[in-house]
Nucleic acid binder design. Sequence first.
DNA 1: ATTAGCACTCGACAGGTGAGAGTGCTAACG
DNA 2: CGTTAGCACTCTCACCTGTCGAGTGCTAAT
Lengths: 343, 343
Amino acid sequence: MLDERKFMILRAIIDDYILTAMPVGSRTISRKQGVGFSPATIRNEMSDLEELGYLAQPHTSAGRVPSDKAYRLYVDSLLKRDELTEDEKLRISDYISRRAGQVEDVIRAAADILADETQYTSVIVAPRIQTLRIKRVQLVPVDEGTALMIVVTGAGIIKDALLSVPSDMSAENLYRLSEMLTNELGGHSLSEVRQIFAGVFRNLSINRRLLGGVLKVMEEKLTEDAPEDVVIGGTTKLLNYPEYSDIEKAKNFLSVFESKDRLAGLLKKAGGMEISIRIGTENEIEQLKDCSLVTATYRVGQHGRGTLGIIGPTRMDYHRVVTIMQYMGGVISKLLSGENYEE
Amino acid sequence: MLDERKFMILRAIIDDYILTAMPVGSRTISRKQGVGFSPATIRNEMSDLEELGYLAQPHTSAGRVPSDKAYRLYVDSLLKRDELTEDEKLRISDYISRRAGQVEDVIRAAADILADETQYTSVIVAPRIQTLRIKRVQLVPVDEGTALMIVVTGAGIIKDALLSVPSDMSAENLYRLSEMLTNELGGHSLSEVRQIFAGVFRNLSINRRLLGGVLKVMEEKLTEDAPEDVVIGGTTKLLNYPEYSDIEKAKNFLSVFESKDRLAGLLKKAGGMEISIRIGTENEIEQLKDCSLVTATYRVGQHGRGTLGIIGPTRMDYHRVVTIMQYMGGVISKLLSGENYEE
DNA sequence: ATTAGCACTCGACAGGTGAGAGTGCTAACG
DNA sequence: CGTTAGCACTCTCACCTGTCGAGTGCTAAT
């Protein structure tokens, strides 16, 4: 429905607007390399594009500004994916790998470098621990009557909690109990723990009365719903963009990050798509109506998955963001799935 | 050097300015309850106070604004400490206790409620783990050739790291090694680990080569300088105050929180004082020259200590802040030192 | 010593003006 | 017939101006 030339002009407008954040006039476009038309011609086309809903005028006789619809078209059909330079790739993967170790450290590092590279605010949702496979369960004595329960996967600790245990329980006993639990639960995910426990109770060969209480508490701790683990990087990056030079808007925007749960929900709406872009009002959240949200998915092992995203103004540099996110998704997946824990 | 009346007037001015953030005029003070003087008299006194460096005028014929020096006098001699209401006490201690468990959870909760109650930005430095007494060291097998090392103190996990171990090392052996390490290191602080290791190496009765590697990694992991663990709450609270309605100032302020290390250094300068207040330029950090920093110390067990602080405009409500901080210092100390891990 | 009175200063605000950027329309051109 | 030059028009923004009010400092009276 849009002919070649309109496409070209629209693209030029968006490119310019992304760069300058100022309404784009016909002359600006006409002067561009590769555009062989006079301002008047461009004006006619722009007028058409406005009628079609791709452009908007803040007021008569300002230039024009792309609408959400325009950005949508832009990312759907005009977006070319670049490759990152070797330099950039190295910078990113180095930064993240250097802190490899605990899942949380990786996520934290990833959020930081993502925000730094894109200059937008980054958000990463940690993999739902419920889906990870348990490797070991270990009880460690802490005090008379207190033990620390630790659940381990290939990626490190995923859950730990303090329990009270019968005070006459020896370290030896705790160790044996750990072995038993590891046998029972190893290889399963947290979400399956509850069913398994039913079985464990039945087969109890050890002193049932002594252990009953402990097991119950453990079951609770293991199955309780962990709050969504969301890491945010570069919260204040947005303040560098002119569209947020107004304090009210800035506050409004920042308020989105107060509720991590809502944020996690938002990110996860993207579903399993490799890259998802939601522009302006597509976000359904009032405060983000002038923002775009780009999300990507990463994997942890066979079953775990998490989401990384960046939030920026609708006039964001989609090329760059998409390219970076794609690369980072890969890096994170590899780090968190691989068993590379030499260091 | 300041007579009774000047004191009184200065105090009235500060009180008013804290409330309104607007330069205070002579009439405003004169109209106040308990001030029996005409504006003219007040003006004379204010003029004196200005000469003495306690007040400043943004421009002729605006009212006057208290200087850092005035705030200093205010907190040193005019500050009366209130008690919190039972209601507030309960709200605070409840909020924090509810998440008791891991040190980090407590700190996180404390930072949140502190920011909420004061409406300023809160910062809490976690206790230096170096000074905590080790309770146990536990090695947990994760994979062929990989183990997770967990160091436990009375307050829960404080450090964990993945190590590679000889791939023929059994769970049984790891367990025995854990016992040995616990014996050697238990009761000592992390900062002493390095010396102890020297001794351990000498007494090694088990396969020396096998253990050598493990110990080396452990030493590294245990003694490496952990980055300061700093938790920040209510970062954007400051945006609600008129002095930060300018984006540039806001950005400037927020940049302080980018480097947690510097922030930690700043907080710790307060030293061991129970409550320390640094006003405006006393902070030595350019970006905080319009801010005050109130810090308090909390204790963890015998030797651990950490700092909690809030950062707000110099015209902050010192009464309230000090009162809250004092109370919270107590609550945190009790929670992190006490051995109350029933639940 | 205190206060009333008054002239003075300065910022905030409203209204007015001109420049500049950009538009839409029309008529001319290849 | 598509393209373009020209032009009148619109709207914002920056700047200037005058007025108003808050607050001061000084002086003289109490």
